[in-house]
Design a protein around this nucleic acid. Structure first.
Lengths: 241, 241
DNA sequence: CGATTAATTGATACTTCTCAAATCCTGTGG
DNA sequence: CCACAGGATTTGAGAAGTATCAATTAATCG
């Protein structure tokens, strides 16, 4: 099923110059000289589905930049239950929050799929921050943007029903990971993972997904979900924007 | 009851040099020269209880630094219900998130009490960011720290019961605003405001407060709450740290 | 292909919300 | 300083939403 031994991306380091995946990435502020520096300092690794890139509570020595793959950021709750804070994929920078605030990691980063990620050491990052004000400002922008998103999530969790939140989560997953050739969400999450994102019990997700299916909003094939009526989901979920 | 007409702080601008209230404030990174600059650029105003400093959705032209007072940051939910994201008081800088991310304000800032706040124009702030890397880094630290806090709040909202969250909120209020001479929380929030912080119905707050009173954890005198057993509240609320 | 994990379904209990009515408090104006 | 109006708080009852537990079926991975 896998031919990872032959996959050329397995061990060849990616060049940062050709790898700015997101427009809204702090790295987009860097010139080719700076990118060269980072490219030189970084090391690339591969993570299989389920493997942990960074562990909540530990102190990071750098950040990861996702070259290719899908991860989740989750936080352990009081009763040992995971809460998924958000997903990330190609071009996202991870671990910078904790590195910049000087705190331990607030979430565990775990691969949802085979993921190639580049590790940028703390020193290289801070060097860039000190010498490139635009990069520094962009990092700050990124943090501030996420802070705004967090406010929305807080308000939703506090005020919306499980059904509304599930509808919104399906749309978030769609926006983040897109569709595969069959038009299904391009990520196979377990019902439990969806529940851990929504903030509810696994059984509730199952019942509501089946309700959405009956209503014709989605199509279910095992772990694969296809969104049939995004507009209706947005209405059910009271999704703004 | 009020002698605000005679209050010397009413209209006299405060000097930033003598006004760094929080150790963990971005302004603490500034030397006396920089503080003088800000002191010169800023303008001070007074807000009565209930008055709005900044309105969600608008585009800020600067930030507020609270000299003296108490405010809440709240976000409007889909059904017109407020969600209080956090409280702030002396030494806190407000509105910087939106200013730095270039977005509209994600929350409304409203005075919970008579509040004296200094307005620092965008230009003065950005000038400081560009010329003082340490200040810039401290701002970033602040944003990243708050982002970590937001993750905790999200996890709590998703996983804890209303009772647990209320217990925690009482401790947060205590930590933020401290006690008055009678040992009560030094802020008189309505039951509804507490509910909007906890993320529940007003009646639920009322019932649970009365339960906490019966258990001897707190004492109630109208809107005034006195914490009698913070340790037990922490246990009830599964509060870490 | 088999073992294990995940998903589903049903029944039930519990938490939390909503609505309504009564009482209390607070801020305001006289 | 007091009385009063209007808002805030309290209480009860009932409904709705959600979680939990248990048992069965289905899917997945080596």
């Amino acid at each position: 099923m896998q031919k990872s031994r032959l996959d050329p991306s397995e061990s060849i380091p990616f060049s940062c110059e050709n790898c700015i995946k997101k427009d809204f990435s702090a790295l987009s502020a860097l010139g080719s000289e700076d990118l060269g520096k980072i490219s030189h300092a970084k090391s690339c690794s591969h993570f299989k589905k389920g493997e942990v890139l960074m562990q909540e509570g530990s102190r990071p020595t750098g950040v990861y930049c996702i070259h290719n793959g899908k991860v989740k950021l989750s936080k352990m709750g009081t009763e040992g239950k995971d809460q998924i804070l958000r997903f990330a994929n190609d071009g996202d920078i991870l671990g910078y929050r904790s590195l910049l605030s000087g705190e331990t990691l607030s979430a565990t980063i775990q691969a949802l799929d085979d993921t190639h990620a580049c590790f940028i050491p703390k020193a290289a990052l801070f060097d860039m921050i000190e010498t490139n004000p635009k990069f520094s400002l962009d990092l700050m922008k990124m943090a501030c943007h996420e802070l705004g998103e967090a406010g929305k999530i807080i308000t939703n969790l506090a005020q919306k029903t499980v059904k509304e939140r599930l509808a919104e989560v399906l749309l978030i997953i769609h926006k983040t990971f897109g569709e595969n050739p069959e038009g299904q969400l391009d990520i196979a999450l377990t019902r439990e993972e969806i529940a851990n994102m929504v903030g509810t019990a696994t059984e509730s997700v199952i019942r509501l997904l089946s309700e959405f299916k009956d209503q014709g909003y989605i199509e279910l094939k095992g772990r694969r979900i296809k969104i049939l009526d995004a507009q209706e989901l947005a209405i059910v979920g009271n999704v703004e924007d």
